[in-house]
Design a protein around this nucleic acid. Structure first.
Lengths: 233, 233
DNA sequence: GTTAACTGTGTACAAGTGTACATTTAATTC
DNA sequence: GAATTAAATGTACACTTGTACACAGTTAAC
């Protein structure tokens, strides 16, 4: 249907795999030492995410807690991160990769664009479930993180919105809108998704209410699309 | 233009003044003791809000910190609240009053409904500034608070949305929508406002970007209204 | 006026925190 | 193989935290 040509948006940034596996580093063979370091590093990242998912607030978890969960001694933490804040910024990088995967999955499914909203929301939902920890971190951090983390997350959501702008303009969903107006609409969509995320993440073990919430989100996206189509300067 | 007749929604709940003054308790003359207690109680509440506004995360501030800022000894905290969580639930009550004032102000201004969105957003903006602490707490707590605080905030935002439904139906803004559909739209509006709040609160000392963000919010609300008008089952 | 109730004080302690520093262990380099 | 480098350990210390407990000072009740 269309090709991914927004290289300019991302070519400058490398992000590690979101799978959080021990950083395979595929082609380049690492030295054993660096390999082990990368291993405990992602153990720390995973420990932090796990603690966040288990109900902890990222702002309150301590270096010692993280280190314990990662199976290392507290002071070893400093070999990898200066701070919990610095670790948090790395979590944002994981989030970035995850969001990009989300966009890619949504694009694959959107061949038949008649049910575009349906499809996209289902994919969003699946990502919420399969990367719960990251999205809990995202929703927490966007308003409750340190200033630098808040900014980093804001930035990722902005990039996400720009991706949506790209898609909307390539599919000519709203021919009457210029790119600034498309961005405005995309921001509204992203905001609505992010806002819903908080609710959905809290409904993990209540399938009925969760489905209801998803239906609400879908209707709201439809309203946004209807409104965007009607927009006049 | 219209009268406030949604008594059924609120008649069962009393909320203290949001001004956080020492709980005047107007008509009933309190005993001196209870009066003093109420005084230090709101000193604790104000201390917590101040700490939150000064950049602290509510989840991380300690009983000792709050007590110190309130000018009492740490252990005296327990005479008023069992927990920081219990204090947090009281902050939600303050928030509730604040949101109700917001609705009321918006209604007073909405006599000429031609610029309804403009007016409402300006009022929203003013409330964000004059009750910064409460809204910082709200955005933090909605996704990063304890489960009970998250629920309490969710509940308040739901009540807020119901108020909007009330207004929309009384003004017959969208004659084609039934009340469930109006609620869906109101939730979208509330979500968009809440999402924007996080951004706006971070732009307090950057008037230029702040104005931009407000313009974005206004455009987005317009999209929502356009879409709601176009909605068909 | 005495007694009882209650808010706020002061002390105390065990548990948890960040982090400096010296040490051990293992991989890389020569 | 010896020397070097770096990751992880272990110990240590000065905080901060929540909270139990005994106490003091005031107000309320009788």
């Amino acid at each position: 249907m269309y090709t991914c040509t927004q290289l300019t948006l991302f070519s400058s940034r490398y992000k590690p795999s979101v799978t959080l596996k021990p950083e395979k580093c595929s082609e380049s063979q690492m030295s054993i030492r660096k390999e082990k370091k990368a291993l405990t590093r992602s153990a720390l990242i995973n420990a932090a995410l796990q603690l966040v998912e288990e109900g902890g607030n990222f702002a309150t978890i301590s270096i010692r807690e993280i280190a314990k969960h990662a199976g290392i001694v507290p002071t070893a933490f400093y070999r990898h991160f200066k701070d919990t804040n610095e670790l948090g910024l790395n979590l944002v990088d994981e989030l970035s990769t995850c969001l990009r995967q989300l966009i890619r999955s949504a694009r694959e499914q959107s061949e038949n664009s008649t049910q575009l909203i349906n499809h996209s929301i289902r994919i969003f939902d699946e990502h919420l479930s399969s990367h719960r920890e990251l999205f809990v971190f995202m929703t927490q951090g966007r308003s409750g993180g340190t200033p630098s983390i808040r900014n980093a997350i804001r930035n990722e959501l902005n990039v996400f919105a720009l991706e949506i702008v790209n898609d909307l303009s390539q599919q000519q969903s709203f021919p009457t809108l210029n790119s600034a107006q498309l961005k405005m609409v995309a921001d509204l969509i992203v905001g609505t998704l992010a806002y819903s995320a908080t609710d959905l993440l809290d409904l993990t073990d209540n399938p009925v209410l969760r489905t209801e919430r998803l239906a609400l989100l879908e209707a709201q996206c439809r309203v946004i699309f209807l409104g965007a189509a009607e927009w006049k300067a």
